[in-house]
Design a protein around this nucleic acid. Structure first.
Lengths: 123, 123
DNA sequence: GACGCGCTACTACACGTGTCGTAGCATCTA
DNA sequence: TAGATGCTACGACACGTGTAGTAGCGCGTC
């Protein structure tokens, strides 16, 4: 699977949440920052399609609807592994940093030690 | 601090290890893959200097020697935070993936829970 | 059925990054 | 000291990514 960029990831997150959306809907869903131009979103969505990360489903009016063609998990896995390689293969310093900076608490770790916290936190 | 790219990181890692090195020495230290051209290494080293990540120390013959101007820790911190933002701020899926894939064992976590394993594992 | 608005398709462009070549100067050697 | 070797300085280029504009077609509305 091709690697996704920052902006591509942002749009993928919207699509994973909405399940299916048009260019306009994806753009409207960007709320925490200045929205890029309509055609910017369109371009990136097209690139995502070329990369095989999303696909067109149907048309509503003259607008295409898009849906994810890959799972969030598989996309993230790719990112994780790439990142691991970037920092030399060992996750230790990363985890140490997370704990040090308080981004990951001991409670989190304890929860993760167990098989799985309970399926249902997704969506 | 500016963000470092993959290749820049690779060269930084060599410099952090050698403490001080010339363009040639840095290039020679690349062993696990096809060495880039001499001038490629030179160019990237120059860019690293512009970014303030390394500095020239002295000349040996007509060759400059370079040394790191930033710590590995601070460079990594920048990467970690950027990466966290990329995956939406939560380290949970990351840690879950690490455990799942066996890259991080429960023993690692236990060791990290304690204040610090002992200063001296560096270098 | 004509019109307008919105959507698609295509093009374009700047910047970062990995990659390298060339020119010319400096240094060491014979 | 003159030549060879090696280093620096600088330029260049392709590709990915974020960004947007324009042309033109089609759908829904009146």
């Amino acid at each position: 699977m091709e690697k996704l960029t920052k902006l591509e990831l942002e749009l993928m997150n919207i699509l994973w949440r909405l399940r299916e959306a048009s260019v306009r809907e994806v753009r409207e869903a960007i709320v925490d920052r200045k929205r890029p131009a309509y055609t910017t979103v369109q371009t990136v969505l097209l690139r995502l399609e070329e990369k095989g990360a999303i696909r067109k489903t149907r048309k509503i009016g003259n607008a295409f609807m898009f849906e994810p063609a890959i799972t969030r998990k598989s996309a993230y896995r790719r990112l994780f592994d790439d990142f691991l390689e970037l920092i030399g293969g060992s996750p230790r310093p990363l985890v140490a940093h997370l704990i040090e900076s308080g981004k990951l608490t001991l409670e989190d770790l304890k929860a993760l030690e167990k098989p799985a916290p309970k399926k249902g936190t997704k969506r």
